[in-house]
Design a protein around this nucleic acid. Structure first.
Lengths: 191, 191
DNA sequence: CGCGACGTTGATTTGCCTCAACGATTGTGG
DNA sequence: CCACAATCGTTGAGGCAAATCAACGTCGCG
């Protein structure tokens, strides 16, 4: 059941009483998205954080020269949002879209700010979660700044189960910052 | 005075009472580093976070093929640490070094964990600070993933005052992930 | 069935690297 | 305080990874 999943997740960071868990649960909304549905469309302000219960999403941007570049994929148990837009209430240049049928907890900024005050332990949990995201992004940067396209590709497909099967190749290429043509060549020479 | 600077900084995030500020101040240490001194050497565990009061530092790594690559610069009012090593107590592959005479507040993990409990508002402050760092690194990634070397260079030098004067070119090149030779060419064609 | 989305292949171009050599500047020991 | 070495920046020749552009095969879906 949903509430149980939430408890199991937060237990990794803090110990919540049943009352605290209940408070949090009341302020979350379970939302289901179908394939190709948008969690956020470019131009809008990102008003929610999403915790992915199941499914797969992508975060992407249409660049000035008109082609889309994917900045992030999200899978089960990841928090996804446009943090910049969420915090600063600025219009998002990024869009967030479901690539499969996806179920999330959505929490609005208003509700989250309320919860931080009502359940101080949540502040701690998100301090730690955010730190972990920072570490993850720094590790990713190490790979993406210093490694070749080939290494980045194999690093990615082995980090998410069945990734190459779940996502079209041109999206993987976009995320890796290489052209679909070149990714095709990489795959040909290594299979 | 040092304590005043600290108060002004945290006031941006939370309102601390004089008592709370005093508690925090007691657990910080003011440390001065001379040019070329190390705040952290590769192989050691990173036991402190550093808040730069004045000066300039670099974070860098010696890669497997023997040359150094700079992953971060830090200037006044930035928090610097190897977060991965700091949190997980793993040996750091990164080194942190002063590029100018640099004065910092240093806070150990033990003291910071103590302070989170003694001053819950600090948890909030660092939740927000960490979120801001995440936003900053995401913005940096946008530039570094999608832009040419030339664009990255001019983006960097205009973001930190006098940066090109304070840091040798080969370090800037390293941070930008280009060779010193190529940076030289970029500069020749655009001045 | 036909159309659009996706992947592949090949020819050409380009951004950036490698290697080597050479000024200019800095700093340090005699 | 000078001399020499080390550090730093520049220039040029040649090479490679990856992009661009264009064309074509294939598959799934309306």
């Amino acid at each position: 059941m949903m509430k149980h999943k939430l408890k199991a997740y937060f237990d990794k960071y803090v110990n919540l009483s049943d009352d605290e868990l209940e408070l949090i649960f009341e302020k979350l909304e379970v939302v289901q998205f179908n394939k190709k549905d948008f969690l956020l469309t470019a131009g809008a302000v990102c008003n929610s954080k999403y915790f992915i219960l199941e499914g797969l999403i992508r975060v992407y941007e249409i660049t000035s020269n008109g082609n889309e570049t994917i900045t992030q994929f999200g899978v089960e148990h990841w928090w996804i949002t446009n943090l910049d837009s969420f915090i600063n209430k600025t219009p998002s240049r990024l869009s967030i879209q479901a690539l499969e049928k996806t179920v999330v907890f959505a929490v609005t900024k208003t509700n989250l700010d309320y919860l931080y005050r009502a359940v101080p332990k949540l502040e701690r949990a998100f301090r730690i979660i955010t730190e972990n995201m920072l570490i993850a992004i720094q590790r990713k940067d190490e790979v993406y700044m210093k490694k070749t396209s080939k290494e980045r590709y194999f690093n990615l497909v082995k980090s998410i189960p069945n990734f190459a099967q779940r996502v079209p190749q041109y999206m993987i290429a976009s995320y890796l910052n290489i052209t679909p043509e070149y990714l095709s060549e990489i795959r040909k020479n290594n299979s």
